[in-house]
Design a protein around this nucleic acid. Structure first.
Lengths: 219, 219
DNA sequence: TTAAAAATTTAGACTTATCTAAAAATATTA
DNA sequence: TAATATTTTTAGATAAGTCTAAATTTTTAA
């Protein structure tokens, strides 16, 4: 058996690694978990004891195969519940995180799989993140940050890197949502902000920070 | 804040009281929670400290108004999730308890209320138990145990007292489900078993134990 | 009404998860 | 490469929730 706290640590390690830090270091995990390095060290010993991570003192940790399997299942649950919350209960994409954080700890593979069926086997969550299937397989799609596109590039908005409510609400306000066509018109060298056309009609200017957090699938 | 364990104790107290023991005694709560009397005593002190129960040493406990409000909300959540699991995810009525036990601990009033709306404001769960509304109001309906009916009485099956899987699966097997018409044909004095007609067509014999756990709304 | 039985509480210990403060190891930079 | 800064671990405490065994209170029955 694995506790909810242990599950949260596994996810934190997964996120740190996903962000490019591999092996994941104690302080990075502590920041992700919003706790102290001492608490993290304690937990890393427990997780290593359970063979969910490999842990080398002062050198950081990596998920084992079993740790990876568990973490993938967690991410799958989290994202499927997010789809449920948005599509069935009509929450907005900035409201679902806290609920999904709780729902992901509900145990029982059959429940997740029935939920998956009920939702029609979605492969991406409301933020555009991929949802692994029941066997833990990920479906990645080619996408690039808006900040890396060149003027003239066109595509469709496929995801967000930052999940902060304030960011998502801003996107709602300016009319940006997943699936919307977008064309990069020009980049202003002074502050790296970009002028884009969305929905093939409206033109708006987005700051570099926004462009650094929007994923586009170039067509 | 209230922990999941505290929530489970509140529900256990609620069940013991519902069953007719008021105030609820330590041993009855211990049996319900499948733990020791000593652990229960510890927890009763904590719950009394938080003003969720009134606790008199050696004399048992009662829910306070606040304790009752919290417990009602828990029962509401549990039963609404059961409806979701049966109606949307197509689980059977004997499969839903364990999942609902976990889902009921997910925090956030708005989530429960959205779920209620999504499900169409059901007032009874898959076992026929009433679901309190968002204001904590219960809707009771007149119903009697099959064991208390007289030959010639007719009605509709409205609920089960026992929720054990084996009982529910037996009912499935003999064709008994909520909403089905039933007529008591005769009671055999030897063992108090009953012969009934269901669906206005099929005749079956049910043991006294079954009759003691089936609720009928007499028409 | 008093002795025995049953129920309940207390005492003390254990586990998980957390913290602060101090010690140790690693990394950085002069 | 030696001194300093940073990171990480250890040591020792605390709180929640649990347990067993012993003590206490209440109930039952002779």
């Amino acid at each position: 058996m694995i506790s909810q706290t242990e599950e949260n640590y596994l996810k934190a390690i997964f996120k740190v690694v996903e962000r490019g830090l591999n092996p994941a270091l104690t302080n990075a995990i502590a920041a992700e978990m919003q706790t102290t390095a001492a608490s993290v060290t304690d937990m890393l010993k427990r997780l290593a004891e359970k063979n969910l991570i490999t842990y080398e003192k002062y050198r950081g940790v990596q998920l084992t195969e079993e740790g990876n399997r568990l973490t993938t299942a967690l991410v799958r649950k989290h994202r499927l519940w997010e789809v449920f919350l948005v599509e069935k209960l009509h929450f907005t994409w900035d409201e679902v995180h806290e609920f999904a954080e709780q729902l992901e700890h509900v145990q029982g593979d059959i429940l997740v799989n029935r939920l998956d069926t009920f939702l029609g086997y979605p492969r991406f969550d409301p933020h555009g993140d991929p949802i692994p299937d029941a066997e833990g397989r990920w479906l990645f799609r080619p996408q690039a940050l808006l900040a890396t596109l060149q003027p003239g590039d066109r595509g469709v908005i496929t995801g967000v890197q930052d999940h902060a409510s304030s960011f998502l609400q801003y996107l709602d306000q300016v009319g940006i949502a997943l699936g919307i066509p977008l064309e990069l018109l020009e980049r202003f060298p002074y502050d790296q902000s970009v002028r884009v056309r969305i929905q093939d009609t409206m033109e708006i200017v987005l700051s570099e920070k926004i462009a650094q957090n929007l994923f586009i699938k170039i067509s």
